[in-house]
Structures are given as C-alpha cells and as structure tokens.
C-alpha cells in the first residue's frame, strides 16, 4: 500500500481469498474449506492466518503460495502469512454450501461426528460407521473400499447401485 491509501477491510480480503481455489479440489475455495482462519492488520502489514488440513498434505505449501499471490495481485505488498496449528483443522468447518459444491463435483461430503477416534472395537461392531450417500445417484447402498483415498483428506468408496467408485471427504 502507498501512504495515504485506505487499507482494505477484513471482508474485502476474505472476499479475495474466497476466489482462491483449493489446488486439489478446485471447486471449493480455501475459505470454503476453513483453511483461512483469520485476516487482520498488524499496523499496516496484512496478516493472514492459515491452518494446514492434514499435517502432511502436499497442497499446504501451494495454498500458502496462492494466498500470497492473490493478495499481492491486489497491490498489497506488506503481507505476512502465519501458520496456526490450534485448534486443529476440522471438516466441521466446511460450510453447507461448500458441501453441496463437493457433492456436485462427485465427492461425498464429510458426515460430522464420524471421525476416527481409535476406538476400533465399537467401529467394527458397526457403531459410528458412516452411511455415505453416492454423490452420483444418491443411493445409500455404498461401501468403503479403503479409508485412504486419492488425497490425505479422502477415503475411497464405491456405490453398489450405480457401481461407480467415488471419493468420500472423510471426517476429521
């Protein structure tokens, strides 16, 4: 920013970032996914706080790069990115609209309250098992193929009715 110019508002900046797509799932933005945690000014420096999804997600560094590029493109030079671990990122932060976007894109959205908690026996007995609807045909007659899918945040499922394989955005 140049001296004398008004600083953009928090909403302005969030609006810009709402246009930055997630590099792995471009149909949702980094704001939709809850990766951008806060936007604030420290004197005249814009501080954007982001949080990693899975700790080893390779998209994390690309996201930081794209957030920075999107803000610089608006003429802001004084910028700092901060990484915040706590509270840890959760799929609970993905809003209803973003979940609908995921579904239309062919990814079954997360089902809240079904995150792994290490209590294996209860899960194997069927308690807490997610009933995931096929994002293509809507059938609930589906099965988990593997709890680990094409990216760290997804599991591999298949539909037993339309027979299509699909990704499920697993709950964390």
């Amino acid at each position: 920013m140049h001296a004398g110019e008004t600083l953009p508002s928090r909403d302005d900046v969030m609006g810009w970032l709402a246009e930055v797509p997630d590099p792995e799932i471009p149909v949702v933005s980094v704001v939709d996914l809850g990766i951008v945690r806060d936007v604030a000014f420290d004197d005249d420096t814009l501080v954007v706080t982001i949080t990693p999804t899975y700790s080893g997600c390779p998209a994390t560094s690309v996201i930081a790069f794209e957030v920075e590029a999107a803000i610089r493109a608006r003429g802001i030079d004084k910028l700092r990115l901060e990484n915040k671990l706590s509270p840890p990122w959760s799929t609970d932060w993905i809003g209803p609209e973003a979940r609908e976007k995921l579904r239309r894109y062919g990814i079954a959205p997360p089902i809240d309250g079904t995150a792994a908690d290490g209590k294996r026996v209860a899960r194997l007995l069927g308690e807490g098992n997610a009933r995931v609807e096929c994002p293509r045909c809507g059938s609930a007659h589906t099965a988990e193929v593997s709890r680990f899918g094409s990216t760290p945040c997804k599991a591999a499922w298949r539909c037993n009715d339309c027979l299509e394989p699909f990704d499920y955005f697993k709950c964390i």
Partner: peptide, 23 residues
Amino acid sequence: AEIAEKAVREAAYHLERSSDLVI
C-alpha cells in the same frame, strides 16, 4: 499439546486401519 492435538486425529485413522488389517 498443540502438535499432539493435530497429530492424534491422523494417528486414530492409522490405528483403526492397522488393527483392522491385523485382524
């Protein structure tokens, strides 16, 4: 505590998968 809080959610998936496959 913060690192553990982040990592434990991933470790829960690891434990469920490895127990499941051992069985």
